[in-house]
Design a binder for these strands. Structure first.
Length: 395
DNA sequence: GTACATGATTATTA
DNA sequence: TAATAATCATGTAC
């Protein structure tokens, strides 16, 4: 019960104005002769009211949702202050990147960590603001009640209860903050996981490595596990991605071979040139080994492959060691343009490569083209060839 | 916005 | 169990 203040007779304010009563009014109230009696009545009413409210607002069991939120924020590393190590989810993300491009993982992880850190900072900053506001407001209300206790019965218990109410209100705000923080973390996590599932085009190098293998093993484009591992290593992708790629490629190639003919020619010619560049000796130096090289099945030997093999064989030849302007020309197996299965667009495209002291020039030329003096080209196969694969070796 | 390319996923098959 | 075929979902060029 609040202490009774000595009252003196005073006339009550006729119609209290809105807002805080003036000092004169306060003084008049304090000095009113009826104040003690009025005060005791007020105290009785207060006591009943407080008890009833207290009964209603009795603290229930710990808020399960709040506990869940707290646990989650703790698990996500948001509740804890900024630290150097990875958060729980970030650590989990580090170990769960199947099929993703390893080259991008660190970037993705750092991005994830940066965003998580941002969320953590915002959370702690807001939390601090709320705590400060709560403290200020509690102090303000407490002081106000203490001051009011001079005019009306305000027990310490009531002040305590009011503080509890204020804390409850601020806790509700805090819970909203925690909830929105959890949502932000969840969104971030789902985006991160989606990003790992998201399709990304392979790098040019990876595509080239895979295509080179595919077109150089067109008769049997089924790389062994070792070959897959090698291709994965060279392309900076995973073995399963290599498997996926070959699965897709085989099907799409079979479905529409015409569409891939130009690509096949480009790669076979490129491969031939590359082979000569590295001084290949007939081996498929730039390609991982193939498990078998059968020519039957759904991928029959194509003319392009024939051409490649021939070129690779040619690569084993060397310019004449003797000085001078010896010009060696080598003929390839005769192939008509149609038999080669090349589109007109690649006719005439030349590819040069340095080999030792000389250079190769490979091209698929129209049958009618003027070849350099001494050049050899595939003899006519009697079917009216319209193009030849030609390779000249200069000294 | 649309069409096409392409990597990934899934159900089926040998 | 690996390959195939169909399909999904996203990237990219126009």
């Amino acid at each position: 019960m609040g202490s009774l203040l000595s009252g003196k007779p005073v006339s009550p304010p006729p119609t209290p104005p809105a807002g805080v009563p003036s000092l004169a009014v306060k003084h008049a109230l304090n000095c009113h002769r009826m104040k003690p009696a009025l005060f005791s009545v007020l105290c009785e009413i207060k006591e009943k009211t407080v008890l009833s409210i207290h009964g209603i607002q009795e603290e229930g069991p710990p808020n399960a949702q709040l506990m869940r939120l707290d646990n989650m924020l703790l698990a996500e590393g948001v509740s804890r202050p900024e630290r150097r190590g990875r958060g729980g989810s970030a650590a989990a993300a580090n170990t769960a990147t199947p099929g993703g491009c390893p080259n991008d993982n660190s970037l993705e992880h750092s991005d994830y960590r940066a965003k998580l850190s941002q969320i953590r900072q915002i959370y702690h900053s807001e939390l601090e603001k709320y705590e400060q506001a709560c403290h200020e407001f509690t102090t303000h209300v407490t002081n106000l009640l203490r001051e009011q206790s001079r005019m009306r019965p305000v027990s310490p218990k009531e002040i305590e209860r009011m503080v509890g109410v204020i804390h409850g209100k601020f806790n509700a705000i805090q819970m909203q903050l925690k909830q929105s923080t959890c949502e932000a973390v969840m969104t971030l996590r789902s985006r991160f996981l989606d990003a790992r599932r998201k399709r990304r085009n392979f790098s040019k190098q990876a595509t080239e490595v895979l295509n080179e293998y595919f077109y150089s093993h067109l008769s049997n484009p089924y790389p062994s596990e070792e070959a897959k591992e090698e291709l994965a290593r060279r392309g900076g992708i995973t073995v399963s991605q290599v498997s996926n790629w070959f699965g897709n490629k085989r099907i799409r190639y079979k479905k529409n071979m015409g569409k891939f003919q130009e690509e096949a020619t480009i790669y076979t010619t490129k491969m031939a040139v590359d082979t000569t560049k590295i001084g290949g000796l007939g081996s498929q130096a730039s390609c991982p080994s193939t498990p078998s090289s059968g020519s039957s099945g759904p991928f029959p030997l194509t003319s392009a492959r024939d051409a490649l093999i021939t070129l690779q064989t040619l690569a084993s030849l060397r310019p004449a060691p003797a000085g001078g302007s010896l010009r060696s020309q080598v003929s390839l197996r005769a192939q008509s343009k149609d038999a080669l299965g090349v589109p007109d667009s690649v006719l005439g495209q030349r590819h040069r490569a340095q080999v030792g002291g000389g250079s190769w020039e490979c091209a698929i030329l129209p049958a009618t083209s003027q070849l350099p003096q001494g050049s050899l080209r595939g003899p006519s196969n009697g079917e009216g060839p319209t193009g030849y694969l030609v390779c000249c070796l200069d000294d």
